[in-house]
């Protein structure tokens, strides 16, 4: 055996090497574009976060954690961070629950599924910046239809939705829910159709009578993976809120609607402090990565019954 095996060994080793080389060559275009388009820019942004880089000032100096110290002490940033947390805390639960409710109602209904699905999905496919103009008109304190209706119902001084610091975050959150609920609804509908009909039938033969009991025994547990995905994606999309703020309020009034990405944008592109802006981006990135980690490591195991 040994002689024959030894004689056969070199060509086999050469073939394996050739195969490995071929593999590397084939994956080279993808690897190269990943390196150039994703990895290097990300590393550059991370590196920039530890410098005082400003557009026009060269060379930038390495300042270590100075940017993060400034952020910690910056009342504007803290306000922006708090606003983002409030916004996410309002939009994520409301749009997830609303999406689930809409999906259940549309699935239960006999007619008009396609129509309702399209109606509620419309905000997702429409351009937010363009729709913001419509919202601006709807919420306008004097000529807006919402306040006109409120006045009709006897509200003497309806709030200035987008220009009062008490209401602006709530108004933006409402627009955020409107934007995201339809997307969540479509995801939940996909999850609902994946539940085997046999299970619902088994439940009713087993004595489940009411829709609520069926939801508790079958629908909700089997929607687990969908719900986890919807919650994660909604959280990430909410943290990323930017265009409604940029178009409707510019963070105002008096920073009452300043959010993370908008702060990053003004620091980087208005004040041209790219180093500080990169540090904010880094904080944002850490938040998003943490959310994804929670999904994959902790919750995923509890909702897949494999």
């Amino acid at each position: 055996m040994s002689e024959a095996a030894l004689a056969a060994a070199p060509p086999r080793a050469r073939r394996r090497l050739g195969e490995a080389l071929g593999g590397w060559l084939l994956s080279l275009p993808a690897a190269l574009s990943f390196l150039l388009l994703l990895l290097l820019p990300t590393l550059a942004a991370v590196a920039m976060a530890f410098t005082d880089f400003e557009l026009g000032l060269w060379p930038p100096a390495w300042i270590g954690l100075e940017n993060f110290r400034e952020m910690w002490e910056d009342r504007g940033f803290r306000q922006s961070f708090r606003n983002t947390v409030v916004y996410v805390g309002l939009v994520a639960p409301a749009s997830v629950l609303l999406g689930l409710g809409l999906a259940l109602l549309i699935e239960a209904g006999a007619r008009g599924r396609a129509l309702f699905r399209a109606v509620f999905f419309l905000p997702v496919v429409s351009l937010t910046v363009a729709m913001a103009a419509a919202w601006q008109y709807l919420l306008h304190p004097t000529i807006g239809p919402l306040n006109a209706a409120l006045r009709n119902f006897g509200v003497a001084a309806p709030p200035a939705w987008l220009s009062s610091s008490d209401w602006v975050l709530l108004s933006l959150s409402a627009i955020g829910v409107w934007e995201q609920a339809g997307f969540n609804m479509v995801l939940f509908m996909a999850g609902l159709t994946a539940i085997p009909r046999e299970l619902r039938e088994a439940a009713s033969v087993d004595g489940v009578h009411s829709a609520f009991e069926r939801f508790r025994l079958v629908t909700w547990p089997l929607l687990g993976p969908t719900t986890l995905f919807v919650v994660t994606i909604t959280l990430i999309r909410s943290v990323r809120v930017f265009d409604t703020v940029a178009v409707l309020t510019r963070g105002g009034p008096n920073k009452a609607s300043e959010v993370l990405l908008y702060t990053m944008y003004t620091e980087g592109f208005t004040f041209l402090r790219l180093g500080y802006s990169a540090a904010i981006t880094l904080v944002f990135l850490v938040i998003v990565l943490a959310l994804m980690l929670v999904q994959t490591r902790l919750l995923d195991r509890r909702v897949h019954y494999g």
Binding site: E198, E201, A202, V205, D206, H209, P221, L222, Y305
Partner: peptide, 18 residues
């Protein structure tokens, strides 16, 4: 079905996976 006093074994068993 819940009021009929019937029990059923389904083709794909239809066990509650969770």
């Amino acid at each position: 079905p819940a009021e009929r006093d019937v029990a059923m074994v389904f083709q794909n068993y239809a066990l509650y996976p969770h």
